[in-house]
Amino acid sequence: MTGLVFKRLWIVSKLEKAARMVSFQPGTNILTGENDVGKSTLIKSLYHSIGADAPQMNNTRWKRAKAFYCSEISLNGATYFIVRDGKHFGVFDAQKDMLSKHSGISTEGGIADFICDQLDFNIELEKSADGKLGRAGPAFYFLPFYVDQDAGWTKSWDSFSGLQQFTSFRKNMIEYHLGIRPQSYYDAKKKEMEFVEAKSSLQGERNVLSTALATFQKRSSQIQVSLDPEAFKEELDQLVDAYNLQRARQQDALSKVNDLPPAGPSLMTRVCRFDFGSRR
């Protein structure tokens, strides 16, 4: 947590065309004031601006204001401006040049890709919906450091919205923040889940191929090949006739060769003359 410091926060209301800027000093800051002047909303807005949604930020009164946020933070010694409007985020450097833009929080391309990477918080937990791994967003990193008056006072480690998307998130986060299970454990857990999913996929392919093979073997054993000569009588007769014709031609050619006189000089001369004459 020492790597992140809030420096300033802007809250802008699209409906009221009004804005409020609050600056924070280095060290400890204390907010004082009467009830219902916005102390809790200000603290909620700090976390909300960087992707950690606190309860009651979507109540009817606040939603009517249509607020968006800009927080100036120091993160690992570097200054950033993060703008949030609904589910959309923009990250800017100290010179206010855009570094990246994000949609959503823990989804692919969400603000967690920036915040959690900077905090070296790359934890993936099992989703309650399907048991697959999903990235834990900034709220899970800030759990030990914030107690929300609307939720955290009545139930421990419940100060942010959306925590129930993962099974056993309390146990996992307590063990992580206490150092019982460090980042390396979750890295290994991710690899294990990837291997299990790959094995399951290969097993599914194997089952499909086994079923196809069994079906083929069953069908091939039932195929009866007909070798009845009567079914091919006409084709066989045609082949026999063709064979007999070729056999007769062969015998006739052999007979003619046998009737030829022995070869000699005079015969060769006559043959050559005949061939010469035929060319003319």
Rank of each mutant, 00 (worst) to 15 (best):
F24I: 04
F24L: 06
V91L: 03
G152F: 01
S74K: 01
L267W: 06
R64G: 05
E126Y: 10
K7F: 00
A214Q: 10
Q250L: 15
E235Y: 07
R64V: 06
P261C: 03
E192D: 07
A263N: 12
I223W: 05
G162T: 04
R20L: 14
I223S: 07
T107W: 08
Q224F: 10
A129Q: 12
E126D: 13
F160M: 03
M21W: 07
F142Q: 01
L267S: 10
K191C: 08
S13D: 00
K44I: 08
A78W: 10
A78P: 12
D130I: 07
A18N: 10
F68A: 06
M193Q: 10
R170G: 01
G86F: 04
W153D: 13
P182V: 02
L75D: 03
A263H: 12
L15M: 10
H177G: 04
F6H: 00
N76V: 05
L260T: 05
F114V: 02
A65K: 07
S210A: 15
F195Q: 09
A78Q: 14
K233P: 15
L202R: 13
V147I: 08
V83M: 12
A52I: 01
D93H: 09
D237V: 14
T269E: 14
T2C: 13
K199D: 08
P229E: 01
L42W: 01
S49G: 00
A214F: 11
S71G: 04
N122E: 12
N58M: 11
G38K: 00
M57F: 09
A231V: 11
G38D: 02
I105R: 01
Q183H: 12
F232P: 05
N29W: 08
G110E: 00
F114C: 01
N76T: 06
Y186V: 03
L202P: 09
S13Y: 01
T28H: 14
L213K: 10
S40M: 05
G77V: 00
P262I: 09
D275W: 13
I123V: 14
E234P: 15
G152P: 02
F6W: 03
F274C: 15
D228P: 04
I73Q: 04
I105N: 00
K66R: 09
G27N: 09
L75R: 00
Q25I: 15
S103N: 13
H88L: 13
T2L: 15
M57G: 07
L213S: 09
S200V: 11
V83R: 11
K63L: 10
C70N: 14
I73Y: 02
F169R: 03
G277A: 13
F160L: 03
S23P: 05
P55I: 03
W157N: 02
T167E: 06
Q25G: 14
A18S: 11
T269K: 15
Y243H: 13
L31P: 00
G51I: 01
N172T: 07
T32K: 12
L42N: 02
Q118V: 05
S266N: 14
F81H: 07
K87A: 12
H177S: 02
L15Q: 12
D53E: 15
S45W: 00
L213I: 09
Q238V: 07
A212P: 08
Q246V: 13
R249F: 11
